[in-house]
Computed example of a mutant assay.
Amino acid sequence: MYLKTLHLRQFRNYQDQKIEFTAPKTILVGNNAQGKSNFLEAVELLATLRSHRLARDHDLIRDGDAIAQINATLERALGISDLTLTLHRHARRSVAINSEIVRRQMDFLGVLNAVEFSSLDLELVRGSPENRRNWLDTLLIQLEPVYAHILQQYNQVLRQRNAFLKKSQESGVRSQESQLSIWDAQLVTAGTRLIIRRDRAIQRLAPIAAGWHASISGSTEVLQIQYAPNVPLAKNHAEEVQQAFLGKIQQRTASELHRSTTLVGPHRDEVKLSINQKPARQYGSQGQQRTLVLALKLAELQLIEEVINESPLLLLDDVLAELDPFRQNQLLDAIQERFQTLITTTHLGAFDSQWLKSSQILYVRTGKIIN
């Protein structure tokens, strides 16, 4: 796939900016806080309807404006698509394909595929389990767009169940548990669908990431990625997972009523990352952690490419400065002409002359992009 144009209106610090992409690699150069990351964030939103910054819609709209819009022209094997995402300060966002409003947002997903790699991704190793769950969910949304709907369903039931638990002190225990069983059934149904898809994705991703990691580390280290669900998998059969889920949640009912929150479910899952059988979060050096994240991102690219039979876009947000020269070369060699790549940087020193000759170079200054 190839992103031909991107047009931003009142998005972040851009008032009205349109760019036509003329090379497989585009390098956006500028000082910090000029809008380079905002530009990549717009592409990421079109791909996943999520931002790795986890911003709310009104934070994405330029100060003083009520609406922001991202428009892109995308060329794929099946033809050209015009994509539009409209963000409203006081209303729900809307999406359109070829000027036709798409009522179900999951039908918008999967048209544009992209992998974002930013300095924030080092938190995949160092940060909390929530970081790793968000990363896995974003990947799954691109592999299976229906996953976005399933995740939304689960989160909605989880919020409602937690709200019920908080009010539970007002009624009798018998009444509480009777009503709670209704929420249990809904949570188990939606949660099981998440668990099975997360496990399947990790099973496919893990060997690919291990291969990349071995290549980058010179086969001196072994990367292991393990999905550690909060509910036992029970051989990955939906009925068995549901039974295990329901059994565990019933065991914790008293604790949940006491603490007024849901203690069981995929919102408490973990993805374990190990190097040579030691937790990377605790024992990995900075270099090892960077190698691990780089391997994960390259694996994401490869897995999405295998699933959709086209190369996704690669968005590199100021990561070359985070990598030593060897890892930079590993990344740049892996890209070559295989993926359309948008790169942000504060300077061009990390690129060799051949790369610069084959790249479109744009300069970003206070929300304006110039050639």
Rank of each mutant, 00 (worst) to 15 (best):
L8N: 14
F11S: 13
Y14T: 15
Q15D: 14
Q15I: 11
E20K: 07
E20T: 13
A23I: 13
K25H: 05
V29M: 03
N31F: 07
L40R: 00
E41R: 08
A42K: 05
V43W: 10
E44R: 13
L46G: 13
R53M: 04
A55E: 07
R56T: 00
H58L: 09
A68L: 03
G79A: 01
G79M: 05
L83H: 09
A96D: 04
A96M: 10
I97Y: 02
I97K: 06
N98V: 08
D107M: 04
F108S: 06
L112M: 15
N113F: 12
A114C: 05
V115W: 04
S118P: 04
S118E: 08
P129S: 00
R132I: 01
D137P: 04
L140Y: 01
Q142G: 08
P145K: 10
V146K: 15
L151G: 00
Q152N: 14
Q153C: 12
R159T: 06
L165P: 07
S171L: 09
V173K: 04
R174N: 15
Q176D: 06
L180I: 09
V188K: 03
L194R: 01
I208T: 08
A214I: 09
Y227V: 06
Y227T: 01
L233G: 02
K235N: 13
N236Q: 04
Q243H: 11
Q251F: 06
Q251I: 06
R252K: 15
S255H: 04
S260H: 14
T261I: 10
T261L: 11
G265C: 03
H267M: 05
R268A: 02
K272N: 05
L273H: 02
L273T: 08
N276K: 08
K278W: 12
R281H: 00
G284R: 10
Q286M: 00
L292H: 08
L292Y: 07
L294F: 03
K297N: 04
K297M: 11
L298R: 11
L303D: 12
L303S: 11
L303F: 12
E305I: 10
E305Y: 03
E306G: 07
V307Y: 09
N309I: 11
L316G: 00
V319T: 02
E322D: 03
E322Y: 07
D324Q: 03
N329I: 14
D333T: 12
D333N: 14
A334Q: 13
R338G: 06
F339I: 06
T344C: 09
G349W: 01
A350W: 01
S359Y: 09
R365E: 13
T366R: 11
